[in-house]
Nucleic acid binder design. Sequence first.
DNA 1: GACGGTTATTGGATGCCGTCCAACAATACG
DNA 2: CGTATTGTTGGACGGCATCCAATAACCGTC
Lengths: 181, 181
Amino acid sequence: MIAEAATELFLEQGYAATSVADIAARAGVSRSSFFNYFSSKSAILWADLDARIDELETRLSTVTDPSGIDDALRAVGRGFAPGTLALALGNADAMRAEEELFHGGAVRAARIARAVAASLRAAGCDPLVADVAGAADAGAVMASITAWTRAGAGRVGLGPLLTRALDQAAHARAGAPGAAA
Amino acid sequence: MIAEAATELFLEQGYAATSVADIAARAGVSRSSFFNYFSSKSAILWADLDARIDELETRLSTVTDPSGIDDALRAVGRGFAPGTLALALGNADAMRAEEELFHGGAVRAARIARAVAASLRAAGCDPLVADVAGAADAGAVMASITAWTRAGAGRVGLGPLLTRALDQAAHARAGAPGAAA
DNA sequence: GACGGTTATTGGATGCCGTCCAACAATACG
DNA sequence: CGTATTGTTGGACGGCATCCAATAACCGTC
């Protein structure tokens, strides 16, 4: 309910012009309660993806082989339903939320990149190469999500996009010891 | 002077525990003046790199061939002096600034990735591939900067690290139309 | 050396975010 | 029915970033 109220207001007034107090009022709860359900205003947009990245982090912490990394990354997109984030990406201009989406997306990409790089490093990969490969993988995940939502999430599957992007990113691991192609 | 006062306080009290008012007081200026020189507290750390990314963006907006992109990326690190950012990266634990460095680094990486991807797209590259390659290049730049500073900036050159990282990232462009290897 | 215009600096007020806590309602349970 | 756990609320707080009007410093000109 809070998320619904928020997206309504974002569409009406724009993201930046909508305060947490506005959202709470529209949702019929107090400002305090808002922060019981979302840790911040931007969390409304990113909560779903954040949960999946949490899972990715735990999964990658116990996985070392490259194919396991790819599986874990693909799992991020498996069953990813068009939610608040997709709505925001699709209506970024109406919400005037480009800045927030850019910032938030940057942080999420960095989280993915860090997790992948740590996993590769644990597998004996050169640290610098691990960082580059992690960034490429993270870019692949984020790029396919934005492409998916901007193309009208649901009309096309996220899976194929993700596969193509991750295959491309896998080239960045070329010649990496501990991360054979 | 403001930056010096800030780094002192960051080392003494930590990044989060240091308020803009503290910095202004130590530097002997008013809080208003602080914001005349830095757009935010975190800008103290990132101002130098931001200026270079600004240059990168303008440079890439007039460049389409892949080798030009590589040159522009290498120029980001050319003559990059150990400044506030290097000091923060080197003393991240003492400053308790890991979070800020992570966030700030994520945003800067995303800026670089966006610029590179736009350039590749303009050269006819597939959008998804462009995003992946841009993320890889951005990861290469950021990874080499952090590796450089953590290894004690100055004792080793940034150039070689950057070259190695960008070479690795170049693999992510493999088979990309409009961006031949 | 006085003066007018430009630029730098300052204080203050404002809105909002995110955190904390103590009080209170509501619900489940023995 | 009493109690314990959980959920909700209001309020206060410190901090960030923005704005603006007032003031101070500077600089070339006369």
